[in-house]
Nucleic acid binder design. Structure first.
Length: 221
DNA sequence: GTACAGATTGAG
DNA sequence: TCAATCTGTACT
């Protein structure tokens, strides 16, 4: 995805990210996931945001970078949280990526370069379009160790940690985002309260969590 | 120097 | 419902 995609308000980017693919180059293979759940944090006014009241520390510095940079931090002493900065430089908005639908690239069918990878993506998409089969079958086939259906687990799935702090996903060699041919329908996007921020008073009630309707990988159902 | 809470998770 | 686990941050 080009820079322009990310230089927009977090609330727009968070919705637009649904259905996009994250590709992670790791030890000679690609780990791929489709974004199915996000949350927007709009910065200075938003009491739930780390950048509330223009707070700027070593930890959240990356939120201030121009859209398309990684803001990653540790919560509860053990889980990484993967965010992408949005809007202009100096404007601390970001989107938390909360869940991915796994795309299997480890099967024999999938190994064999980009062409096979693309075929696998297509196959995966048509596979999932069948309500009878759905995502659970994909899990069975891919023998996943970690299911990326939560913000902490998604970082384990994509092998992300502090070393990605501040990295640019527009020019990324180890991680980047890509569009797909299937446009997400507006009616497939559900808005809900953000999770785990009850301390944020009225801001906790804002419907700034977005997810794909009926998707099995969404974190809390 | 020290206290403390957190954008989660899985087990019971 | 609860504890694991640890670091950045805000205090003294």
């Amino acid at each position: 995805m080009p820079r322009e995609f990310y230089i927009r308000p977090a609330l727009i980017v968070a919705k637009d990210l649904l259905g996009k693919f994250i590709i992670r180059q790791w030890r000679g293979k690609k780990i791929i996931g489709k974004i199915v759940e996000t949350e927007a944090y709009i910065g200075p006014q938003d009491k739930a945001a780390h950048s509330y009241n223009w707070r700027r520390t070593k930890r959240n510095e990356a939120e201030y970078l121009i859209g398309g940079h990684i803001y990653i931090y540790l919560v509860y002493g053990m889980y990484w949280q993967f965010n992408i900065s949005t809007s202009f430089e100096g404007r601390p908005e970001c989107v938390l990526i909360r869940a991915l639908e796994s795309v299997d690239t480890s099967s024999p069918r999938a190994s064999g370069g980009l062409r096979r990878g693309v075929d696998n993506l297509r196959q995966h998409l048509s596979f999932n379009s069948s309500p009878q089969l759905g995502g659970l079958s994909v899990l069975r086939r891919s023998k996943l160790k970690v299911i990326p259906n939560g913000p902490g687990k998604l970082c384990q799935y994509l092998k992300l940690d502090k070393s990605f702090y501040g990295e640019d996903v527009v020019r990324g060699k180890k991680i980047w985002l890509a569009d797909n041919a299937y446009k997400t329908k507006k009616s497939d996007i559900i808005s809900a309260k953000r999770i785990g921020i009850d301390y944020a008073q009225e801001w906790a009630r804002k419907p700034w969590r977005f997810y794909l309707k009926d998707n099995l990988f969404v974190s809390k159902k």
